[in-house]
Design a binder for these strands. Structure first.
Length: 388
DNA sequence: AACTCGTGGAG
DNA sequence: TCTCCAAGAGT
């Protein structure tokens, strides 16, 4: 028994997942749909992507609609999904592809587009254009490491895994259905050949899997041990006025959380901030007190957030003013609390704003002690005249 | 080659 | 709780 393409495709025909970006069986895929989904799915789970994909296609139904939109509109739809350079590259790519009148239909040209690397180029080529290549993602790496019992650890084994994966579609049956074959490998990895406890009994390739023969399938692929995550600390400030307007600012266009909107605050450093140093970065702290009145900052809570390469603890301070001073360029801009969804808030900042608004809302309503987790920013009503 | 770059669900 | 890691790309 070998690794039969026919066996895999037959399994796929009976077990394929129905996903919003997938064409119906026997129908050609839309390159725009495939592209959007592949970018969103980079290092992101299917369940996380689905609602984002659906909203995205409602707002940008076509390549031309996306290319014509401001990049900030794209970031708003991307907010919360992470890896924001994907959104910026997506928008850049849309401009190029729309200008060219459509996607190139070969791997090399696809690979040259912004945000499209070796994996995504192969995925679009195979799924949208029927080119017989195998996109090597985490699923395919895992399946390949197992069926060939490759024990060398990732990421060093990546090249070897790609070379071996490329041999999986040699049979005629695979060459005849490149799109289905690629997606069959994804579904096999996602549903059968899973990371922890693979369901080998149900696997169409069980007879040909070298790792299963020696019982080491659950141990593959091996991975080099990862370094530990350093801790960083920051302080952010939520300032709101009686009209329900928040002071916010935009992060630099590239780098961490590039282009997203945040509460003003400190840098994120390796050591805890003392109160005095942190409050130098509070909004209007350098303005004459007569201009703003004295701002009464209160500790609203602490946010723990984990990034790929460091963990972050943010102390959130909140304050309320009758009337917001007119912000100048260094301060940022005003956002109505009920229009936050029109801004590109990262998940971190969504948590910070929610914590600050919960505190203000609870403190403002009737003087109750602010509750930890109750309420959301959506049910905090902050309208003119309230809480005078 | 080794970093940077998010987030949340699963186990 | 904590660790893992997901349809990776850019530098």
């Amino acid at each position: 028994m070998t690794l039969s393409s026919t066996a895999l495709l037959t399994w796929y025909d009976r077990n394929r997942r129905a996903l919003p970006w997938r064409a119906l069986p026997g129908h050609p895929a839309d390159p725009y749909h495939v592209w959007i989904s592949e970018i969103m799915l980079q290092q992101t789970t299917v369940t996380a992507v689905i609602p984002y994909y659906q909203r995205f296609l409602e707002r940008f139904p076509t390549l031309e609609a996306l290319a014509a939109a401001p990049v900030d509109d794209v970031l708003v739809l991307w907010a919360g999904l992470g890896y924001y350079s994907r959104a910026r590259n997506l928008h850049r790519c849309a401009g190029i592809v729309a200008e060219n009148g459509g996607f190139p239909r070969d791997v090399e040209s696809l690979r040259a587009l912004p945000g499209i690397g070796p994996y995504t180029a192969a995925a679009i080529a195979a799924i949208a254009f029927g080119i017989p290549v195998i996109p090597v993602d985490g699923n395919v790496e895992r399946v390949t490491a197992r069926v060939f019992a490759i024990e060398a650890p990732l990421p060093g084994s990546r090249k070897l895994l790609a070379t071996q994966a490329a041999t999986l579609n040699r049979e005629k049956a695979a060459q005849a259905r490149p799109s289905d074959f690629a997606q069959a490998l994804f579904d096999l990895g996602a549903g059968i050949c899973t990371p922890r406890s693979p369901a080998c009994v149900l696997c169409p390739w069980q007879g040909g899997c070298a790792a299963q023969k020696s019982g080491i399938q659950a141990l593959l692929p091996r991975r080099a041990p990862k370094g530990d995550r350093p801790a960083r600390y920051g302080v952010h400030f939520l300032l709101i006025d009686d009209a329900g307007r928040l002071l916010m600012r935009k992060r630099p266009p590239s780098g961490l959380l590039g282009g997203t909107v945040e509460l003003p605050g400190t840098e994120w450093l390796c050591a805890l901030w003392n109160r005095e140093d942190a409050f130098i970065h509070a909004p209007f702290s350098d303005r004459p007190a007569g201009k703003t009145g004295r701002i009464r900052w209160e500790a609203a809570g602490e946010i723990k957030h984990v990034f790929t390469h460091f963990s972050l603890s943010v102390a959130v301070y909140a304050a309320r003013l009758p009337v917001m001073p007119n912000p100048d360029d260094r301060d940022g801009f005003l956002v109505r609390a009920d229009e936050l969804q029109k801004n590109a808030l990262s998940s971190l900042m969504r948590k910070c704003v929610e914590t600050g608004l919960d505190f203000i809302g609870a403190a403002g309503r009737d003087g109750d002690p602010p509750s930890k987790k109750s309420g959301t920013m959506r049910n905090v009503k902050l309208t003119e005249g309230e809480g005078a």
